[in-house]
Write a protein that binds this DNA or RNA. Structure first.
Length: 246
DNA sequence: CCCTGATTCGC
DNA sequence: GCGAATCAGG
C-alpha cells in the first residue's frame, strides 16, 4: 500500500480528529499502526497526548508541581506546549451524552431555544429511518459478519437508526444538529459526513457500538470482511464521503 | 498482559 | 520515504 493523496488526507483528518493510530490504520487498511504513526510524524502532524512522557516533560511537570504548592486555585493553563488542535475528543469522562438537553458549558451564541415542534425534513443528509423501535434482542458483534444474528432470526439484524436529533431544538438552522469536532467523545459515533473544511462537515454523533469508534450502522460500513481481490467491486466504503474531489 | 504514541534505523 | 522494532507510560 502506498500513501496516495486520498489516504494521506484520511490519515490527516482522522489524526486531527483524535482517532488512534490503530483505528486509522484499520480504517485505511493495508498499513500498520506504526506506519500510520510514522507517516503522521513525517507529515508534521505532531504531538498528540502520548501515554509516554518524556523525561524532560516529567521533570518539568514535577518541578512545576513542587513549585506550586498552594496556588492551586486557577487551573494551570496547559503546562507544556498546548496542542493547537482545537480538536481532541472531549476528554469529559463523566460528561453527559452529547445530546443532553443542557450543555454544561453554554457556549456564547449557542442559546438554543427549546422549540416545541417535532420534525423538519431539514437537510437531505442521512435520511434517518423513522423507526425508533427499541430492539429488545441483545446482539453481539464480531469480525466479518459484524452483527451476529440470533438463531432463527430472519429480520435484518441492525435496528434502524433512531432519529438523530435527540435534542429538542436548535437555533442556527444549518449547524445546530451537527456534531462538530468539539463534540466528539468516546461515546458517540465519529463517522465523518462531508469533507473537512467545508461548512457542513460534521460527525454522525450516534451512540457508539461499544468498543468501536462508530455507531452500529457505521461500523457495518467500516468493518467488513475482506473479499478476494477478484471479487471486489468498486471503491471500498471509506469514511469522509470518500476521497476528496479536487 | 493489553493499549497508546515516539523514536530509531535498516531498507 | 517507509515501517518494523523497540521503547516507555497508562
Amino acid at each position: 500500500m502506498s500513501w496516495t493523496d486520498e489516504r494521506i488526507d484520511t490519515l490527516k483528518t482522522m489524526w486531527e480528529a483524535g482517532q488512534t493510530a490503530s483505528q486509522i490504520a484499520e480504517a485505511l487498511g493495508g498499513v500498520s499502526r506504526n506506519a500510520v504513526i510514522g507517516k503522521a510524524h513525517r507529515l508534521g502532524l505532531q504531538s498528540r497526548p502520548s501515554p509516554v512522557v518524556s523525561k524532560e516533560e516529567a521533570r518539568a511537570a514535577a518541578e512545576k508541581a513542587a513549585a506550586t504548592p498552594t496556588a492551586a486555585a486557577a487551573p494551570p493553563a496547559e503546562p507544556v506546549a498546548a496542542p493547537p488542535a482545537a480538536a481532541r475528543p472531549a476528554p469529559a469522562p463523566s460528561a453527559p451524552p452529547p445530546f443532553s438537553t443542557a450543555p454544561a458549558a453554554p457556549r456564547e451564541a449557542e442559546a438554543r431555544a427549546p422549540v416545541p415542534a417535532a420534525e423538519e425534513p431539514d437537510t437531505a443528509d442521512e435520511p434517518a429511518a423513522p423507526t425508533p423501535a427499541p430492539q429488545p434482542i441483545l446482539r453481539s458483534v464480531g469480525p466479518g459478519g459484524f452483527v451476529r444474528q440470533a438463531p432463527g432470526e430472519q429480520q435484518p439484524p441492525i435496528a434502524p437508526a433512531p432519529p438523530r436529533r435527540l435534542v429538542p431544538a436548535r437555533t442556527a438552522p444549518e449547524y445546530a444538529d451537527k456534531t462538530s469536532l468539539l463534540d466528539l467523545n468516546d461515546k458517540i459515533c465519529k463517522w465523518p459526513l462531508g469533507h473537512p473544511g467545508e461548512p457542513d462537515f460534521h460527525f454522525c454523533g450516534e451512540k457508539v457500538n461499544p468498543g468501536f469508534p462508530y455507531c452500529v450502522a457505521h461500523c457495518g460500513h467500516a468493518y467488513q470482511a475482506q473479499l478476494p481481490r477478484r471479487d471486489r467491486r468498486g471503491a471500498p466504503p471509506l469514511p469522509f464521503g470518500g476521497p476528496r474531489a479536487r
